[in-house]
Design a protein around this nucleic acid. Structure first.
Lengths: 239, 239
DNA sequence: CCGACTTTGTGCGCGTATTCACAAGGGTTA
DNA sequence: TAACCCTTGTGAATACGCGCACAAAGTCGG
């Protein structure tokens, strides 16, 4: 079996490692930046720097998509943008509903990163009568009672949950029952869903806690026992 | 070397795997839930279910902190809460500044998950004269010109960046120059910082793109199966 | 005091991710 | 055409994380 056949089999059969998929959007953003500055061709070294990764990793990641570089030259920016977009499914439109229109839901509704990448927000829903009917970012907030209708009528395929924690699982069950198989969850709860449904979670509280851990470690470990000589770091934190 | 010595060495010397650290906040949240329901003791099986992980993984994670369980019984909820909190650095207060008070910054300022975990928001800053002076969640927004003063005077140790992408790197450089070594970045850019500074990134656009990838895969893979006739790729992306 | 039962803590094997280092391949110039 | 340079694509080594399965260690009833 030749190398090329081997590559095609790898690509077609069961594809791309999760770790790679998670980085493709980062590459894509870096490429868009280069594109705006008129760059036509980029080497793995340059692109890796722009994306904040190791160049070997970048090359291996891209090799999972196919052989889109030119040895001795690099990658053509525009072509690579297209290939990554295509692989990620950004060449088609995805219909999104945002459920929960508090502070966070509002921020999400107005976030430019959605529309610019093929994500179309087709519904804002909330349970609060005081919020229903308000216009947010050019859309009228609808009542959560209409959830199933909205999903069906507008072909929503991705649900963004920005509800309070207590409501998240119930809402999640309803969107899943309506056929949605991709959920982006901002509520601080672990959602339980059937296997075929993908859930991704965004949780700023968790991120902060991870930072606190590392910050504490820089300052000499948890309160109590600590290695001698780390005393002067403690002041730095407190001061 | 006895097992116990071995464990202590492991714990003290270079500590806890990143993957474990990232899960500790999840366990902590699950434990708080149990605590509110009055649960005194919990088995690894139950806690793992509540946190959405495998029970063996949970036990291994907790074993990195020490031997806090009782065989045949389980873990004492309160004690475990304390130990995890301590390890994560949540038994001390962390002073946070939020920079950029757009929709997202406002949502963050009002987010309860901060205050409830030992994170005190001590400053809201923005460059927009129209926003400076407004009161948000009980705090008055200050001008970004005062960034260095605010950080120094109030002992800010964690900076939350919710600025537009274009401003993020500049602001980041300034907070780092002021001695901040932990940054939570919501702006869609790769920040470059010195090695001793920790940056964590929250990016909803990336999460959505990952969902789109999997959604597309469920539906049968990328659109056009093959490169040969992909001459029109430019339009598709721009349109 | 003992034996049955429960649950922890962990040794081990497996698969995945990362990184190095280099051969292979394409461009370029004389 | 040939010799040289540059950068990709990838084999191989290493590190890391996961989960099974079980011995160790505790509880509890009799």
């Amino acid at each position: 079996m030749t190398p090329r056949q081997n590559r095609n089999r790898d690509r077609a059969e069961r594809g791309i490692p999760d770790a790679t998929v998670a980085r493709l959007p980062v590459y894509l953003r870096a490429l868009h930046g280069l594109q705006e500055r008129g760059t036509v061709t980029v080497s793995s070294e340059e692109l890796a720097a722009a994306a904040g990764v190791n160049s070997a990793k970048l090359r291996k990641d891209l090799s999972h998509l196919g052989s889109y570089g030119t040895r001795g030259v690099g990658y053509e920016v525009e072509y690579l943008v297209y290939q990554i977009s295509r692989e990620l499914g950004l060449t088609q439109d995805w219909v999104v509903a945002i459920i929960g229109v508090g502070n966070l839901g509002r921020a999400l509704a107005g976030y430019g990163g959605f529309a610019s990448r093929g994500f179309r927000v087709a519904g804002l829903l909330d349970a609060d009568e005081g919020i229903v009917g308000q216009e947010i970012s050019g859309m009228v907030v609808e009542h959560i009672d209409r959830l199933e209708e909205v999903i069906a009528e507008r072909g929503v395929s991705i649900a963004v949950l920005a509800t309070p924690a207590a409501a998240a699982q119930t809402v999640c069950d309803r969107v899943v029952a309506s056929g949605v198989t991709s959920v982006l969850n901002f509520a601080p709860v672990v959602l339980s869903v059937p296997d075929e449904v993908d859930v991704r979670k965004v949780d700023m509280s968790i991120e902060l806690q991870i930072l606190a851990f590392h910050e504490q470690r820089k300052a000499g470990g948890p309160l109590g026992e600590d290695p001698p000589g780390a005393a002067q770091y403690v002041e730095t934190v407190e001061a």
